[in-house]
Design a protein around this nucleic acid. Structure first.
Lengths: 160, 160
DNA sequence: TGCGCCACTGGGCAGGATGCCCAGCCGAAA
DNA sequence: TTTCGGCTGGGCATCCTGCCCAGTGGCGCA
């Protein structure tokens, strides 16, 4: 991993272009970039087989689905209960992602809920499991920087 | 918002299908769903103008870009320094997202770095700003549940 | 210095998908 | 019952895709 990886300027421009206008095709892309279509096509393929671009899945807004409340929960789990806890959390649809982190056997997960009241139900379901000792929840109020990748891509391209 | 929104079964199947095989076109989609092409096309358009589907931006893997280390930082900020802190954090490429949360004027941000050592540099840059009083960092070790949306979509579709 | 490799170019080709149109049908609401 | 919105199934021209090719230029290596 990371062996032959790395992004050059053209790769960076491809990703940024794709991030800004996801619907454009290879041909339009090659026109904007000022390269031959075959080049753009080859680069795109390489970026995907490289794993740099994982895919083009639809970005779904949980709020538009009826889940406008987002929260982060820090979980303290009982020793050795990791696998069970993971399985449990994976089975809860409102758990959007889960990380294990350094610290006291902690996990961090992102939750959504239909309302603040509903969040209580979600949390109850999340922590209503033997392996979980304690949970601390932080409700998201604003999202000044939504998940982004462009600045990082540009820096990676600059660093050659 | 959220007025006429909501997802029916067909919408749910469209999103799930798109999430699993993002490259398929409208025609192939209509074939898999067993509906007319016009229907699939109209639904997709509606989902996008609804805001349920925000877009189809490329999913870029920071690790493949040379940033294999992910961390979450909880920041305590000085009263009234919110706007400045946001601007500062937005200017750091390694800050992938930023949330303001309930609690003691806290913020939570996701960071990436080239290595554990590099993470120190990133954190220094993040907290090297007047408005930030204290920072607690949790390094991500594993990601048992990567950011996902399918289970939530299926539940939303089931709930009518 | 000369050679081979690799990426890029510019072009061509057939098949397929897209965007857009239409008339007809049907169920639900007024 | 009438109207309306959504779905169907079809057609159309245009455009893009995936794939192919030969030619060219830069670069590292012997």
């Amino acid at each position: 991993m990371g062996a032959g990886s790395g992004i050059d300027g053209l790769d960076g421009r491809i990703i940024v272009l794709l991030a800004r206008e996801p619907r454009i095709g290879v041909l339009e892309m090659s026109r904007r970039l000022g390269v031959a279509r075959g080049t753009a096509q080859a680069r795109l393929e390489r970026l995907q087989s490289n794993g740099v671009i994982r895919g083009f899945g639809p970005e779904v807004d949980p709020a538009a689905l009826g889940y406008p409340v987002t929260a982060f929960a820090t979980l303290e789990i009982r020793q050795g209960q990791g696998p069970q806890v993971r399985r449990h959390l994976a089975s809860v649809p409102e758990v959007l992602e889960l990380h294990t982190t350094t610290g006291t056997g902690d996990m961090l997960c992102r939750l959504v809920a239909r309302s603040n009241a509903d969040l209580q139900r979600v949390i109850d379901r999340v922590v209503g499991f033997d392996g979980i000792v304690r949970a601390a929840t932080a409700i998201v109020m604003e999202n000044p920087v939504p998940l982004r990748i462009i600045p990082l891509v540009e820096q990676a391209a600059r660093d050659r």
